[in-house]
Write a protein that binds this DNA or RNA. Structure first.
Lengths: 162, 162, 162, 162
DNA sequence: TTTT
DNA sequence: TTTT
């Protein structure tokens, strides 16, 4: 609820594999995806182009997890906003391990209309059925949620500007 | 509630004057502040240092507006997260004018404890009483709100990592 | 070169019209685009869905301006990173007017490869020919430029992690 | 130099300990810091306030590394902008480990004037001597660098707006 | 109008 | 003026 400091991550990348959704004892959904970003540069010594791909583990909770699990696919390009979280866990030998993930609070699909006019027999056509959403807490039985910046009431007229 | 595209602004700057709070007919608070950011560079021709200050109009609604109106002061350094909104209005001659503002959805005071050891007889000491908050909609009688990134439930233990 | 405070804008939206490129006396290119972001919400009173579209003026300089002018088209979805700048100008009656723009420092095209394997007879296939770039200053005869986050040298091996 | 996708992190937090600077064989500086962000929330079941602190490993290269090593101290509040990078390394038993860090590309000190009028006998008074900077690549012998958004040339007059 |  |  309250934040001290700022912990914000913004990613745009493509899913490297299908999302994985599981359910907590509380019933809340948890979906994990892995998305890639990459950078290329020319090596100063060899003059050769180099490429480096970074993989990001992203986790969604609750309603966002359900949406992500349903609409995201391997290869989908997504915009993700979230926060860094490093989890501690034990490997088989009992020693501590740490994994850093992005806990998503917002997601938007960036691919256009489900594939150039063809196919998509599940009827999903891009932005029509929930391809964007705001997150909520992974707390037990938490509901989805989502307010914020948001529309001006009738007290503030807002027209097309320029 | 739903966003198509991303419209995000992040600012860190100082208030140029005292915040101004007013109330809508609905009872909701609206606070305006103006904050400065600046950049300096060396002019290529003259070799002289140049400075340019940018002023940003920021508007808060509802609960955030009350907090901003109460805790921010002229000179305060703040972190603001919000969205761009261009409002249309008419000047005295009836011609259209446009003003672009940042509708704040999150705010954090960045100054440390209440001001150089002196005064501050209201007992406010920096981070102790609400110096950070999340926004909600300027809709009539909207409540404050605030979900997001958020705490891990007991299903995910999270300790100090390194 | 030096920044006091933070002045950052992140946008993802579609161009409402073709980019407009012009050249400064110095020879530097300047490209303007207008991109839309929108939000929808259910009105509390009427229960009706509402939509509000926000239009953002974005300006590119120099190399980025050339790339934007060449590759962006009406309808293109783009990621933009930049800074807010409010310009003062005089209208025909000589009175002061202000226009707020986003001075782009980074741009990425988000549309996928010109349509699922078909067509695209101009040979442009998405990411292959410059659809992303970093900006530089609008200073006279400024060159393009662009370092930052960046690749790890051989001192830091970086492989695929998970 | 070129980015495919977006990999951006924005942090505001305090250093948990003194920065650690070392030098690569190439002569380039590398500074590591650890900064904390935290969030508090009320537990739904117990009604108790909970707090969770997240620690972020941040690494600076070259010129930024020198500045960070010189000016940042334990407790300093900083704004960091950077990119996520997961490094692979081997522990003593030879098994693979991964560490995720933020490679800083921009840094700003947010603490005000060196301590409320008192002390600071090194003469450092906040923003006067390099408390903000942009990063460059960790490549061998890389120089510092860094342009971007940036000042308008004389072709664009930019005055105080409102 | 801030801040350095 | 875009997009869904």
């Amino acid at each position: 609820m309250a934040q001290r400091g700022v912990n914000k991550v913004i990613l745009v990348g493509n899913l490297g594999q299908e999302p994985e959704t599981r359910y907590l004892p509380s019933g809340g959904a948890v979906t994990n995806i892995s998305i890639a970003t990459s950078e290329t540069w020319k090596d100063k010594n060899s003059g050769q182009m180099q490429e480096r791909t970074e993989w990001h583990r992203v986790v969604f909770f609750n309603r966002l997890a359900e949406i992500a699990g349903e609409y995201l696919k391997k290869g989908t390009k997504v915009y993700i906003e979230g926060a860094l979280r490093t989890r501690k866990w034990q490997d088989q030998s009992g020693s501590d391990r740490y994994t850093t993930e992005i806990v998503a609070s917002e997601m938007q699909m960036l691919d256009s209309r489900g594939g150039a006019g063809g196919g998509s027999d599940d009827g999903f056509s891009g932005y029509d059925q929930m391809p964007e959403a705001r997150g909520s807490a992974p707390a037990p039985a938490a509901s989805s949620s989502a307010p914020s910046p948001s529309p001006a009431g009738s007290d503030f007229e807002d027209d097309i500007p320029f």
